[in-house]
C-alpha cells in the first residue's frame, strides 16, 4: 500500500474514530514523522486530515516555482493565507477555493451539504428562480411546437414575475 501523502510504500497505518466513523490513513515512515503521527500524545486524525490539505497546498506552491498562489478576487485572500490561518477572508473565498474546501470538510462535519435554515429572502428568491426556469422551458416548448398563443401568455408571466418585489434575478 502506498502512503496517502507521497508515493512511497506505507509502513504506518492509522485507524481512528471520527464522528462515529472509522477513518483510515496510511503513511510512509517519513510522512508519519513529519506529521507527528509517531508522537502518541495528543495526535488526532482530524488534524492530520486538515494538515493533509495544507501539505498539498505547500507542495503545490513549491512545484509552481514561485508562481501562481491562487487568490480570492473579492478580498485578495490567498491559499497561502488559508494554509496559515485555516480560516477564510470573506464569503467569496468559499467560491474561489471550492476545490480545496471539500477535503477540508471531510471528518469535520456530519455531512457535506447544508440542511436546515435558509434565509427567508433567499428562499423567496430561490422559489422565484425555480419558477422562472419552469416558465422558460415551457416557453421553449411552446415556441418549438409553434403554439404562439401560449408562448405569448408565458412571456407575459415571465415579465410580470421579473417585476415583482424588486428581487432582481440576473440571468
Amino acid at each position: 500500500m502506498k502512503c496517502d501523502f507521497c508515493d512511497t510504500k506505507a509502513s504506518v497505518f492509522l485507524t481512528q474514530l471520527v464522528e462515529g466513523q472509522t477513518k483510515k490513513v496510511s503513511l510512509c515512515e517519513k510522512c508519519a514523522q513529519e506529521r507527528g503521527v509517531t508522537d502518541p500524545t495528543g495526535f488526532s486524525l482530524a488534524d492530520l486530515l486538515l494538515g493533509g490539505i495544507t501539505g498539498e497546498l505547500a507542495g503545490g506552491q513549491a512545484s509552481g516555482a514561485g508562481g501562481s498562489n491562487k487568490a480570492c478576487s473579492a478580498c485578495g485572500f490567498t491559499l497561502e493565507d488559508l494554509r496559515r490561518v485555516r480560516r477564510f477572508g470573506c464569503a467569496e473565498c468559499y467560491t474561489a477555493f471550492r476545490e480545496e474546501i471539500s477535503p477540508m470538510l471531510r471528518g469535520m462535519h456530519k455531512g457535506a451539504s447544508h440542511v436546515g435554515k435558509v434565509p427567508e429572502g433567499l428562499m423567496a428568491l430561490q422559489f422565484k428562480h425555480q419558477r422562472l426556469q419552469d416558465l422558460r422551458s415551457r416557453l421553449e416548448q411552446a415556441v418549438a411546437s409553434e403554439n404562439y398563443e401560449e408562448a405569448a401568455g408565458i412571456r407575459d408571466e415571465i415579465h410580470s414575475l421579473n417585476e415583482t418585489e424588486g428581487l432582481k434575478i440576473v440571468s
Binding site: 464522528e19 470538510l105 469535520m108 462535519h109 456530519k110 455531512g111 457535506a112 451539504s113 447544508h114 440542511v115 436546515g116 435554515k117
Partner: peptide, 10 residues
Amino acid sequence: QSSLGESEET
C-alpha cells in the same frame, strides 16, 4: 461539533 449536514432541530 458538527454544524453542516444536519438541521438545527436534529
